[in-house]
Design a protein around this nucleic acid. Structure first.
Lengths: 215, 215
DNA sequence: CTTAGATGTTGACATCGCTCACATTGCGGC
DNA sequence: GCCGCAATGTGAGCGATGTCAACATCTAAG
């Protein structure tokens, strides 16, 4: 039941499925999901090359399972975000989200920027869709709690806009891509504050005003 | 055989390098950059499978060239954004950016969400870095023009926040991932308006105020 | 015309995802 | 206890892929 250790020669592998997901997640963080090799992965776990196919239909299915587990984790982060006010809870969730993306950038990229959910390389895994939607709904709940008059349109518009900001910033920040832009000028935390406060500033108006920018 | 019908062909295959980039971009839009096959690509152009290696060191180099050409195009879009006021020009550039992402989602993903710039699977291509930086700088210029007192910190903070929003929204919107969330409630254009107006609302304060959100 | 360099081809190799036939283990029914 | 069945792991192998080396061909310069 516990994680099978390499030294213990077991009849069969303890829980190969879980071991595969775990080891693959580590591999991915090292070299990106595009470069994950199933054979190499199997070898590193001491099983044959065909063994993974007893638990996953194909490579995409493994990646989908990894992504789904990532969404479960992210959902828990959102659920556990604590604070005295709804705004504080939302901000805490946002920081948790950005921390998650910073610590596991390649997993984050697999979850939200791969072809797994796009359907361009085959229909998306149903469990993955469910996991991603569940994560979104928790976030939407956090957003709804911060609105004074939470009608559905305002909730969704605000949630999507906030999510876009956090998502885009998380991806841009990864791999130190932003670093050359702020040498000695802006620290990461200053930037995060800018993102958060900018959104909070604009928040009350979101979805409500018909205010249009001049085209 | 199926020679390229280039009437100004100088030697064997006209301009194979450009033909490769162009055909590969089409292939990528159909099935994602992860599933691009060099051999298939070469065959579709009527050349042998080793021919591409006369122009690109490896598969990554081809992908990098495609991504770079995408950045050139995006830079041109930003440069050509027209409007009466700086704000209008910035908004026009934003719409062009979102339109680009909507029309060529897989190219957009390759440019901004692949492992090419991350360095996790080898050092990034220098030309690609240059192309991406050039694109950013044009955008930063558009942002700077909208600020009243454009000190460097404010410019960079605002540019990054705006870029994050547009970038995240573009990626979230692709593959109709947002569609289930707004059935009969929000149209795409309404959402785009929300993103833009929300940013514009918050814009004057960005990077300037020490205003902190309650944590 | 000659020749050097650029461009394209053929053959080969290692690796990859994936499948199939077979061996082994564990568990539930007798 | 025993047996059989389903789950799990193995090994060999197929087709496709990225990549390289040796060879062939064409262009352009001298």
């Amino acid at each position: 039941m516990s994680r099978a250790s390499a030294d213990h020669a077991t009849y069969h592998h303890g829980d190969l499925r879980a071991a595969l997901v775990k080891a693959a997640a580590v591999d991915i963080e090292r070299s990106g999901y595009e470069n994950l090799s199933l054979r190499e992965l199997a070898a590193s776990l001491g099983v044959s090359r065909a063994a993974p196919y007893r638990h996953f239909a194909d490579r995409r299915a493994l990646l989908a399972a990894i992504a789904a587990s990532g969404f479960y984790e992210l959902t828990a982060i959102h659920r556990n975000a604590s604070g005295k006010t709804p705004q504080a809870r939302l901000a805490a969730a946002g920081r948790g989200y950005l921390a998650f993306a910073a610590e596991r950038p390649q997993l984050f990229r697999l979850m939200l920027a791969s072809d797994l959910l796009s359907g361009v390389a085959g229909p998306p895994d149903p469990e993955l869709i469910k996991a991603a939607n569940a994560c979104y709904e928790v976030f939407e709940g956090l957003v709804a709690a911060t609105l004074d008059r939470p009608d559905d349109r305002a909730i969704k518009a605000t949630a999507i806009v906030l999510m876009s900001s956090a998502y885009g910033f998380a991806l841009l920040r990864m791999d130190n891509r932003l670093k050359p832009l702020m040498y000695g000028r802006l620290t990461q935390t200053e930037l995060i504050d800018a993102v958060l406060s900018m959104q909070v500033t604009a928040l009350p108006r979101a979805g409500g005003g018909k205010r249009r920018s001049d085209t």
